[in-house]
Design a protein around this nucleic acid. Structure first.
Lengths: 337, 337
DNA sequence: GCAAGCATGGCAACTGTCCGAGAAATTATC
DNA sequence: GATAATTTCTCGGACAGTTGCCATGCTTGC
């Protein structure tokens, strides 16, 4: 690999001059600059980013820690982040936590070792300020942008979230406005912040409508199609009298819908089902799914803006982007029975 | 940020000793090691990867260049790569080419500047050995694993592909076995290697069946739902007498199916449609789609194995993983008419 | 008693780049 | 023609860690 010194030796100048020439600093003559640049191009010189980072005390890299890369919801965020980083000439190192706190901690620690200038993090659990790894991030003054799930506990942590509570509430209100009163809630993993928020929206809307929460209507459904199917079977076995289901995400909603359709239940005539997330499949499902669209690309853009503010030394901030209820054909008026 | 030297100063030993102690080298006493490790943990010491890379002439990083992060097909590959890299304690830098050759080149150049130890690349165009950027990769002896679309033109390039030609041929053969003779082919972007391969499979099967290619049955359909719809409309306008459609991917198939269903055409009674890729939506579409499953996760695993072989100085290789035709309900016997 | 061996730890050098300071060469001014 | 001002270039050092070799001080063997 060609170094500055190699170019310098061949031209009979110092490495310093080459460095300055390539960076177009003013105190190098035009003649030398062109000579240097020409030879550099000819030799295929590529500066060594590690050496530059060491010297500059800045790596021009970001770290990104998300639960999973195959979740299409995150894919859009990552896409936006990568595009912005590319424009800046910065790089992004990816890391998956696979929904495990120990792995998340491990990922963060390795990113710190890489001396990334900032970390984008979608945490597995609701962030606890006292967890050792967050404590360490705070101590190291590392800028962190949390994707969703508020955690503004120190001045180098910002937060960019989609308003899932409001959107979930709007979904429940939509079902209420169709006359439903017995609305089952298929909730996600109890530890997951996003699942908690979606349940919170349901809870608020029911409370506002004066309907007490009914344990019999609440099902643990995880986050996959299979888990949605299992919860639906449970509901059938218990002859739960719900006229609508609000699911924690589209996959669970589809799993549930598959099960009910297989039993001859008609959707939405006999049963309304709403999802969350607006994945592609929800639009092209047998019964196009009522769901919530989250502005994930915009969340990525906003996250990068927020990160740059932190890097500029500006105070931390909390951005909340509106999510939007999309009413399709899987929800309808309550059956007269 | 804590350095080796800081720990050394506090303990009254040299930085060398600390370095050796933390790496568990044999020539440091157990007593010193425990003392050093304890203080390091207490101070939250994190080694500087940039400095280490500079000295070691190895960054323990891979680069990954793919067209788009939101394509679920790539997501599985990336997931597998990240998991394996994590096990090795290596990092992955992501870069999107967004299907543009200039951007791809730019991404590769930046990865070279980062001195990644290897690059995983899913090229935009069929690789031409003489393109300057590939020439440069070859000259720098950078190990490259091409994801799909064979390009074994130098000893540091390996290739891991899914056998799309065979799978596409199997799809056409499936349609032929159902009695179809007028099989329309909705082909993808003409420059894209994957689109070329899928068309090639169709071509081979038709040729083997003794059916000459008919230009009237071949439609440029791009790679999106909208393009699939447009191609279907074109087919309707031209009253093309096809009894089946083989689409370049699932999205195009779904776009086409949507259009025909809206016109009252019944699938598969009046028209068979096959996709490619087995995205989630294809399984849960109104008419579950006949398509091809590509072993993308396994492709990622195989790619990492191949990369390690290259790093170990072993010769380059070509791995081809079988793709599998999945017959669902969107294809059926040719209508009797 | 002397050489050899061993365990432990330190010094200098090196990785590639860039900053600050100053030297050398060129040009401008009187 | 001498000095001052400016341009152009070089030198030493720093960044944080690792490698190879050497310097201890101690034990062992003959």
């Amino acid at each position: 690999m060609i170094r500055l010194k190699d170019i310098a030796l061949r031209l009979g100048v110092s490495a310093m001059t080459v460095s300055k020439a390539l960076r177009d600093e003013p105190d190098v003559s035009v003649a030398t600059k062109t000579k240097v640049k020409k030879l550099a191009a000819q030799l295929g010189y590529v500066p060594n980013a590690a050496a530059r980072s060491l010297r500059a005390k800045s790596t021009c890299m970001f770290g990104l820690v998300i639960p999973s890369l195959i979740n299409p919801i995150f894919a859009r965020v990552v896409m936006a982040l990568e595009e912005r980083a590319h424009e800046m000439g910065w790089e992004i190192i990816i890391a998956q936590s696979l929904n495990r706190a120990d792995r998340e901690e491990n990922c963060i620690r390795r990113l710190l070792s890489r001396r990334v200038n900032g970390i984008f993090l979608s945490p597995v659990y609701r962030i606890e300020a006292h967890a050792p790894i967050y404590e360490e991030l705070r101590r190291q003054q590392t800028p962190v942008v949390i994707l969703g799930h508020r955690a503004l506990f120190c001045e180098r942590f910002s937060n960019v979230e989609t308003d899932d509570i409001a959107a979930s509430r709007a979904t429940t209100q939509h079902l209420l406005s169709l006359g439903h009163r017995k609305i089952a809630c298929f909730i996600g993993p109890p530890f997951a912040p996003w699942a908690q928020e979606r349940f919170e929206g349901y809870r608020q809307a029911m409370s506002e409508a004066g309907i007490p929460l009914d344990d019999q209507l609440i099902f643990q459904a995880g986050s996959t199609i299979e888990e949605g199917q299992a919860a639906a079977l449970e509901m059938i076995n218990e002859s739960t009298p719900a006229t609508a289901i609000q699911a924690t995400n589209d996959l669970v909603a589809i799993g549930a819908a598959n099960t009910f359709l297989a039993q001859g239940v008609q959707i939405p005539r006999d049963l309304s089902i709403a999802g969350f997330g607006n994945i592609l499949t929800s639009e092209h499902y047998r019964i196009p799914l009522t769901t919530v669209r989250q502005p994930k690309y915009r969340q990525g853009i906003a996250a990068m803006e927020t990160m740059q503010n932190l890097l500029d030394g500006k105070p931390n901030e909390l951005k909340r982007l509106p999510s939007e209820l999309i009413i399709r054909q899987s929800t309808g008026p309550v059956p007269r029975s």
